[in-house]
Each structure stands twice: as C-alpha cells, then as structure tokens.
Design a protein around this nucleic acid. Structure first.
Length: 173
DNA sequence: CACCTAACGTAATCATTCT
DNA sequence: AGAATGATTACGTTAGGTG
C-alpha cells in the first residue's frame, strides 16, 4: 500500500523540489546585511531586498535563524511605543504579512481534488496546479501543508475521542 | 566522502474572515 | 465569541553543489 511518507523512494526518479537556488554574492550580501538589521523581516521587506520569489527569501531567513541558534520571539514593538502608550502590551506586532489569499469555491474544489489524488505534490505538479487556478505556487504549497496538518489533527481527535470514553468516569471538571 | 546550506516536512501558533 | 483556514514560526530532515 501507499505509505504517506514523503520520503518514500520507491517511486523516485521524480524531481520533487525547487531546483536549488544559488544566490549571487551580491544577493547574499544583501541578505546577510538585512538579517543583521532584522532577522524577522515582514513580507514587503522581504520583497524589497531584490527581485526573487519572496518564498525563496523566506526560506533563507528561516534557515539562517535556525543555523544561528536564534532564540527570539517575533514580538515586535513598533518604535513609536512610548511610556504611556497603549495599556495592552500584547504582541500585537504590526508585522506585515502577505495578504491572506482567499480561494474561490472552484479553486478550492480543484485543490481538494488534487489533494485527494496525492497529498504530496512535487514541484512540477504544484506549479501546474498553481497555473491552473491562477495562484502563486508558494500558496499551493502552503495550502497543502495546512491541509495535511488539519487532516492529521482531525484523525488524532477521532482517536482521542474513542479513548476518551474509557476514562470518562471519575473526573472533576 | 564530508561539509555547507537550500528545500521541505511537521507541529504549534498567529491572524483574518466568516458565521 | 468561536470555527475555519491562510500565513509564519521553530525545529528536524532531505538533498544538491563543492572541496
């Protein structure tokens, strides 16, 4: 049967990833510089660095933070926060994210169909699908990741419910 | 082969949208 | 307010390029 393991090599010989990006020295310089200024750049900041897919830059920052043993919460206080400012010091970082993409029902249907056929698409299939529904490939990748996660959670919940009935007796809540 | 590091997976969480 | 779901993070793994 098919194992859901993404590392199943029996059906290999397929290119499954983006081809490895090699940044120019110039680009690398910009990246390192930007990282030293702010290891958690927002979406627009990442786009401004130079002309490349934002997702590649995002990956670069993720890897860089990991390699450098970064221990920092992405809590960001806008510099304008003064002494008597807002009483709530929550982590309401105004960090700009990519705008939430909303999918039409037909786009969702296409995504769901593809997911049913194969929850682990390679780069070629992802790009093809992205083209088909008119959305960046990186969004398709995120959609699949979220879909897989939530499917797993659902399954787990189902199991816990089953075993929950057993110890549902002497509880005070 | 060893080393570096881009790409990518999961799990958890943040944030927005909708009911 | 809470459910759904897209976006981002930490962390671990996989794999491509180079000495």
């Amino acid at each position: 049967m098919a194992q859901d393991s993404p590392s199943d090599k029996t059906v290999a010989t397929k290119k499954c990833r983006h081809s490895r990006t090699s940044f120019t020295e110039e680009q690398l310089k910009i990246l390192v510089q930007a990282f030293s200024q702010n290891p958690y750049p927002g979406y627009t900041a990442k786009q401004r660095l130079f002309n490349t897919e934002e997702s590649r830059i995002q990956i670069w920052f993720q890897n860089r933070r990991a390699r450098h043993g970064f221990l920092e919460r992405p809590k960001k206080n806008l510099g304008s926060s003064k002494d008597h400012a807002s009483p709530k010091e929550k982590i309401q970082d105004g960090r700009d994210r990519r705008c939430r993409t909303s999918y039409s029902s037909s786009q969702l249907q296409t995504l769901k169909n593809a997911f049913t056929e194969n929850p682990y698409l390679g780069i070629d299939s992802r790009e093809q699908l992205a083209e088909e529904i008119g959305v960046p490939e990186s969004r398709v990748q995120i959609w699949f990741q979220n879909r897989r996660s939530r499917l797993r959670i659902q399954r787990k919940r189902g199991l816990e419910e089953a075993s929950d009935q057993r110890q549902n007796q002497g509880q005070d809540l």
